[in-house]
Amino acid sequence: MTINWFKYASPASFYFLAGRMIPYFTALAIILLVAGLYVGFFVAPTDFQQGEAYRIIFIHVPAAWMSMFLYTVMAFWAGVGLAFNTRLSSMVASAIAPTGAMFAFLALWTGAWWGKPMWGTWWVWDARLTSELILFFLYIGFMSLQAAIDDPKRADKAGAIIALVGVVNVPIIYFSVQWWNTLHQGASVSMIQSPKMATAMLSGMLIMTLAAWMYSIVVILIRTRLIILERERHTAWVSELREGVLE
């Protein structure tokens, strides 16, 4: 038996596959979110140094992780789209960008909220904060490039190149920022690294990360479906869909 791997590379069939997958991932996201919040607020102990304020890590750390993870996923799909000329991959890549940027922004925002009570300041030029900010800029660059190009084919490919250039540069930027930081940073402020994180804290954080992951999948699938509809609006199957022939 040969499996037709390319069946779902067609936007038309992926549209329906995504439609079937969305409810499951939504359910997973909600369950994980509730579980994660419960662990985060009621199970995880109060930190003896940071008090209750540390609990923002349950959203901050997943957001930061997801923003980095989504950038590589986006570059991967954009690269696949560029290499194999599969339209769907490029659509998925452009669907990922806003969610990734949102998580990057969320990480910066929650970082500021955590920094105010902990460090006494909204912002420090810490290595991680700075690289997160630059990552946010890279997302913005990707999105504004795609938004400026009217021809979707050119937009996909141009976006792919800038995403790939970005993904090559992310480690370079990360290490140069870290190096710059060690050079300039006084000893006054440093990320507090608890050597042993309580198991409940760690598991809360991991559950929240999974929740954020599932949420990203749901939102990306929804956005991909919309992009498919927008780009394929002249095709027969979309007009059939509109007339309610297809279900």
């Binding site: 630059i134 800029f137 890279l138 913005i140 504004s144 800038i162 970005g166 540069n169 140069s176 920022v177």
Partner: peptide
């Protein structure tokens, strides 16, 4: 926007 972050 595209180039300046890469110049860092």
């Amino acid at each position: 926007i595209l180039v300046l972050p890469l110049y860092i």
